[in-house]
Amino acid sequence: MAENKVRFIITRQDTPDSTPYEEEFVLDYRPGMNVISALMEIRRNPVNAKGEKTTPISWDMNCLEEVCGACSMVINGKPRQSCSALVDQLEQPIRLAPMATFPIIRDLQVDRSRMFDSLKRVKAWIPIDGTYDLGPGPRMPERKRQWAYELSKCMTCGVCLEACPNVNSKSDFIGPAPLSQVRLFNAHPTGEMNRAERLEAIMGDGGLANCGNSQNCVQSCPKGIPLTTSIAALNRDTSIQAFKNFFGSDQV
C-alpha cells in the first residue's frame, strides 16, 4: 500500500435486521485526518476499493470534540469516539464496526436509547421544582464539587456498555454509566434528598448487582470516570440501604 493512501474496512448493515457485511475503502491521506473526516470523504465520493459505486456510510456525530458521545464506534476492536480517533495513530487497515451491544440502525449508527431510559429509571436528575419557590439549596463544598465534576463528565457514549461482558442480549444489566450517575446525584447536597429512591432503583432487576467486576468499563471510559469505584461505593450504599429497609430505620 502506498504511503499516501489510507485503507478502511467497514462493517456495514443496510437495515436493522439485515446481515452485516464488510466493505473496503481506500482514501488519499491528508495530514491530521480523523475517522470522521474519512467517513465524510467517503460520503462525498461513495466508491469502494474495487472502484464500485456504493452508498455513503451512515454514522452518528454531533460535537466533533469528544463531549457528546454520539460518534462512538468500534475502531480496530476497541469502542471509542470516532471524532477523536486520529488516522495517524491508528494501525492500518483501519477497521470500523458499530457497537453491536446496541441495536444497529444502519452501518455504524446505533440506537443508544436504552442508556437514556436507564437514566430515567435511576432518576439521574435533581428535583428542584415545587408549587412555590423552594429557595436556595444547601451549598456544596468546593472540594466535593471538583470531585463530582469528574463524574459529571459522562457523555452517555456507550463505550462502557460495549466493553462490559455482562451487558448483552442475554442480560438486562443497565451497565456502568447510569450506576455512576446515581453516585453523582446522590453526592449532590440537594440530590441527596432523593438518595434512597435512586438506590432502590438500582437494587431492582438488571441493576447494580449484575456487575461481575470484570472492570473493563473503567479501562475503557474515554472520560476517565472511576466507574468501578462508583460501583463499589454503591455496593456499600445499597448494603446499608438493604439493611435499613429490612430492619427498619427512622431515616429513609
Binding site: 442480560s171 470484570s214 472492570q215 473493563n216
Partner: peptide
C-alpha cells in the same frame, strides 16, 4: 445462570480483571 449470561470478551479486552472474570 450467572456464568451463562456473560459474554466473555477477553480477546478484545485482555485486561487482568477481565481474565479473572472469565476464569471465575
Amino acid at each position: 445462570y450467572i456464568a451463562f449470561t456473560a459474554k466473555n470478551n477477553t480477546s478484545r479486552f485482555g485486561y487482568f480483571r477481565n481474565w479473572m472474570f472469565k476464569l471465575q
